[in-house]
């Protein structure tokens, strides 16, 4: 039976080294570059990176298009903000937990409806639900502050095992908290994607009909994938409100949703780090160009068009592109 031994697809050691180097650099970053503005900028990249990665679980691994994944970041953020304002102003972990739980509770019936469809219908339903959530948040003035957004969210201290690490109002401390949570979510998602469960999601992406004809309950597994992606989005929402101290309904708009989708496409679908890099590029462009012109959307659009034309697989395709170029 020696031939029956499966080759284990072990992770290349260089990949682990590269990951450690990146994480080390990101950890040292706020101590080297002490400018608060840049620390907050990279923090936002990390938070949107987490959101884009969670969208990639749907898009790149399960083959489901969600136009407004930012809705679940928004829901998570509002819940965490409201929890801190009205329930317990100093309980950071409890607030984050509440954010994830409530986001999941809302995402469950939405997902239940959505997985009964596939392809374009699924994508349109995500748009419909996303717009509903946007309108509710925008119009429910007494709870969410409507157009003005949710203001006056307290900055609780970050405590681990009874030790206070600092205030979430401090950009460096908050940055390190985001980095830590995003890193944990990355590892967790990597593990899940490479598990037998991840294999089922891939099968659904490749061929839904065949998946059900090898005995997979396609709807149920799509719902699991959806729930996991929304939970991660809820986590990113919690980090978002802690870092900003504010959220308005525009964060949940269809326009912002398209931005998240672009992050995934720019970075590259079907790799977990691609969308994080994509989020970084997108937020950097948005920030850099908006210092020069108020019509920054135009130029971001142009850059995205160029990237899609010349790097159709996204940033992760850059490696292949360069190799081919060198050979030629």
């Amino acid at each position: 039976m020696s031939e029956m031994v499966t080759k284990r697809r072990s992770t290349h050691p260089m990949k682990i080294v590269a990951l450690l180097i990146v994480v080390t650099c990101l950890t040292l970053f706020p101590f080297v570059v002490t400018n608060r503005f840049y620390i907050s900028l990279v923090n936002e990249m990390l938070i949107y990176g987490l959101l884009a990665m969670s969208l990639d679980v749907l898009l790149g691994y399960t083959g489901l298009l969600s136009f407004m994944h930012n809705a679940y970041l928004g829901l998570g953020a509002y819940v965490v903000g409201l929890f801190l304002i009205h329930v317990a102003p100093s309980s950071l972990w409890l607030a984050l937990l509440a954010g994830v739980v409530v986001t999941s509770v809302i995402a469950l019936p939405v997902g239940w409806v959505q997985v009964r469809t596939g392809g374009l219908a699924f994508a349109l339903l995500t748009l419909a639900f996303g717009m509903m959530f946007y309108t509710i948040v925008w119009k429910w003035y007494s709870l969410t502050g409507g157009d003005d957004g949710l203001m006056g969210v307290p900055h609780p201290d970050i405590q681990v095992l009874g030790i206070t690490l600092g205030s979430s109002g401090n950009p460096t401390t908050m940055y390190l908290l985001s980095l830590c949570i995003v890193f944990i979510c990355f590892l967790l998602t990597w593990r899940i994607i490479h598990s037998p469960f991840g294999a089922v999601l891939e099968a659904i992406r490749e061929n839904e009909e065949r998946a059900s004809f090898v005995g997979i309950n396609v709807r149920r597994y799509k719902l699991y994938g959806w729930m996991y992606a929304c939970m991660l989005a809820g986590v990113s929402g919690g980090l978002f409100i802690l870092y900003r101290g504010y959220i308005g309904p525009t964060t949940m708009s269809a326009f912002a949703g398209a931005g998240v989708l672009m992050m995934v496409l720019v970075g590259g679908m079907g790799s977990l780090w691609g969308p994080i890099v994509g989020a970084g590029i997108f937020i950097f462009m948005q920030d850099y160009i908006s210092t020069m012109t108020e019509h920054w959307e135009l130029f971001v659009g142009l850059v995205v068009i160029m990237l899609v034309l010349f790097l159709p697989r996204g940033f992760i395709g850059l490696g292949d592109y360069l190799t081919r170029f060198r050979k030629e």
Binding site: T6, R9, H194, G198, E202
Partner: peptide, 26 residues
């Protein structure tokens, strides 16, 4: 492998490597 995994079971294992399901591989 995915067809065998569905038949034998283990699709809900989220924290193990997919290559680790021995019966499925065999």
């Amino acid at each position: 492998r995915i067809a065998a995994q569905t038949e034998i079971g283990g699709s809900l294992r989220v924290f193990s490597a997919r290559e680790g399901l021995k019966n499925v591989n065999t």
